[in-house]
C-alpha cells in the first residue's frame, strides 16, 4: 500500500474583514467552489459574517471580492502551489 496522498495545499486564500460585512450572502451564493458559509458569530452591527468553512477548496479566483458590495472580503491566489 502506497503511503497516503499528501493533502494538496489550497490554491488561494480568502480574507474577511468581519466588521464591514452586512450579511448579504452574495459571496456565499456565488463562490464557485463552495468555500464560504455563514458563521454563527455576530459582528458589532449584528450581522452574521461569512467564514471559510472549506478553505482547502479555495482556488483564488477572487469572485467573492468582486461580488462583495461592502469591500469586506477578497480572495488572493497563493504564489507557490506545491
Amino acid at each position: 500500500m502506497a503511503e497516503a496522498k499528501k493533502p494538496k495545499s489550497p490554491k488561494g486564500t480568502v480574507a474577511i474583514n468581519v466588521e464591514l460585512c452586512k450579511g448579504c450572502g452574495f459571496c456565499i451564493a456565488f463562490c464557485p467552489s463552495g468555500v464560504l458559509e455563514f458563521s454563527d458569530k455576530f459582528n458589532s452591527k449584528g450581522y452574521h459574517p461569512p467564514h471559510a468553512a472549506n478553505p482547502e477548496k479555495c482556488v483564488g479566483c477572487g469572485l467573492c471580492g468582486m461580488y462583495c458590495p461592502d469591500f469586506a472580503i477578497f480572495g488572493t491566489r497563493n504564489k507557490e502551489v506545491a
Partner: peptide
C-alpha cells in the same frame, strides 16, 4: 447602502 444593494459590486 443597504445590505444586498448592487452598487458596491458596480464599484468593484
Amino acid at each position: 447602502w443597504c445590505p444586498g444593494c448592487g452598487l458596491g459590486t458596480t464599484i468593484n
